[in-house]
Design a protein around this nucleic acid. Structure first.
Ligand SMILES: Nc1ncnc2c1ncn2[C@H]1C[C@H](O)[C@@H](COP(=O)(O)OP(=O)(O)OP(=O)(O)O)O1
Ligand SMILES: [Mg+2]
Ligand SMILES: [Mg+2]
Length: 454
DNA sequence: TCATTATGCCGCT
DNA sequence: TAGCGGCAT
């Protein structure tokens, strides 16, 4: 019964993440790129462009994101390089945003989803699982329903001889052995409150969802299925690409005993580093030896409680029912010698950004029936290292590029220290960023210009 | 020549 | 609320 559901196992949560997403988008556009070492790079003139997505074939040669394409070619001479489209003098991510919408629309047929990034979404499958369990007639769940599923922690290798024997089998044979072991350990499907049984049914639903995504879009993906968002995200990465991983809570202790803190979502930065330094621990599981009070003392009550639960595999962040982005933005860097040092240059690039923003806002209004009310302008000044050194906002009343750009110029004008009569802009700008947010429902098409009455 | 780019969400004050 | 900073893809 629900009231006896084990603590931390109340929900079934999945995270689906597309495999080398921008590469797959380019490969669908140009099928000659399929099954080859391939990257997506933006821009060309500087060292062949910066790589932002890498096929698994290219990864095998050591090619990574953030590498310059010219450098990647040295590691992999046969590397295929697809280019991000350029519009208004800047990178244009439209193809990938559109592909993302295709994927999310398929996933939304199966569950309420949270768009977590351009290529991944969380879903809370708890209700669907319970419904599905009621309709299952077989007493046991058959492995053929879970053909791309790994179960973390299985097969349970107890002796070093077990491990040696598993190493003799091919990858899929080990997967199947583990899956079979785990399924055999589950109670009959009438035992609907079993947390692991619920994970198994969640995994069936996700198998079906991923098959539908591939059939409808041609794109492959991976997934994690567990009891919360952090575990689902972690599980998703364990058997990429084109596979999904169930992470039962009972497998967390062993997994966490050697899992670097930085592998946990939100702990990949300064907080994670400070945990390692202050508590003198490397792995997330080691945090279980501290009391809530100790963790709260060092990291604050909220973060302390989050860590206390998390190192035991427990987390409660809800899956938010949200398919659409909450902001629409565009930005461009002007590094080194290309920094913007005249008023005309600043105006020109604000116009280019405003043109892209206008196009995307109009499409968003037409597709989603909403309008943004706030315009934020951000800049970085030459010499600054932070991503944005200054930001100001103003009302966004009209979807009109010329107004967006002049308003943007007006609210950053005061940053220019050069004389009023000069053409110069100083200090030079190395980043411009425009973003629209605070969405409301769009006015309907009926006449809305009446005064005090409609 | 120095150049990791273009995004997007959330918490703190 | 505005603006900043952190963390992420
Ligand atoms: N730092 C970045 N800068 C720009 N674009 C990025 C960055 N990180 C990721 N992207 C884009 C390109 C990716 O194809 C897409 C999804 O990111 P991500 O899921 O982390 O990797 P991926 O989908 O390319 O490979 P994987 O199979 O490992 O998931 O988002
Ligand atoms: Mg991905
Ligand atoms: Mg991703």
């Amino acid at each position: 019964m629900e009231q006896s559901m084990d603590y931390g196992k109340e929900r079934v949560v999945a995270l689906v993440d597309m495999d080398c997403f921008y590469v797959q988008v380019e490969q669908r556009i140009n099928p000659e790129l399929k099954n080859k070492p391939c990257v997506v790079a933006q821009y060309k003139t500087w060292k062949g462009g910066g790589i932002i997505a890498v096929s698994y074939e290219a990864r095998a040669h050591g090619v990574t994101r953030n590498m310059w394409a010219d450098d990647a070619k040295k590691l992999c001479p046969d590397l295929q390089v697809a280019r991000v489209r350029e519009s208004h003098g800047k990178a244009d991510l439209t193809h990938y945003r559109d592909a993302s919408v295709e994927v999310i629309e398929v996933m939304s047929r199966f569950a309420v989803i949270e768009r977590a990034s351009i290529d991944e979404a969380y879903m809370d499958l708890s209700a669907s699982v319970k419904q599905r369990l009621r309709s299952i007639e077989d007493v046991q769940i058959e492995p053929h329903l879970l053909t791309s599923t790994f179960v973390q922690g299985y097969p349970q290798a107890t002796t070093s001889q077990d491990k040696t024997e598993d190493a003799m089998l091919d990858n899929d044979a080990v997967r199947l052995k583990g899956l079979g072991q785990w399924l055999a350990s589950l109670p009959p499907t009438t035992q609907m409150d079993s947390a692991d049984l619920q994970l198994a049914v969640g995994a069936i639903i996700v198998e079906e969802m991923r098959a539908a995504v591939e059939q409808c879009t041609g794109f492959q993906c991976s997934a994690g299925i567990s009891h919360n968002k952090v575990l689902a995200k972690l599980a998703c990465g364990l058997n990429k690409p084109n596979r999904q991983t169930v992470l039962p809570l009972s497998s967390v202790t062993q997994l966490f005993s050697s899992l670097p803190i930085s592998k946990i979502r939100n702990l990949g930065g300064k907080l994670g580093a400070s945990i390692t330094e202050t508590m003198e621990v490397e792995n997330i599981g080691e945090l279980a030896k501290f009391t809530q009070g100790q963790l709260a003392q060092h990291f604050g009550v909220k973060t302390g409680q989050w860590l206390y639960d998390l190192c035991r595999g427990i987390e409660f962040e809800p899956v938010k029912p949200r398919q659409l982005p909450k902001s629409i933005g565009c930005s461009k860097n002007f590094p080194g010698k290309t920094s913007l040092a005249t008023k005309d240059q600043v105006q020109h690039w604000l116009e280019q950004l405003a043109l892209e923003l206008e196009e995307r806002l109009i499409k968003d209004r037409d597709m989603n029936g909403r309008v943004a009310k706030l315009l934020t302008v951000g800049v970085r000044l030459a010499g600054e290292t932070k991503p944005s050194s200054y930001s100001r906002c103003c009302a966004l009343a009209r979807y009109e590029a010329s107004k967006i750009s002049t308003d943007s110029y007006a609210i950053i004008k005061s940053l220019n220290c050069a004389g009023n009569h000069q053409q110069a802009w100083s200090p030079p700008l190395t980043l411009l960023h425009l973003s629209a947010s605070k969405f409301s429902d769009a006015p309907t098409a009926s006449y809305g210009g009446g005064f005090l009455s409609e």
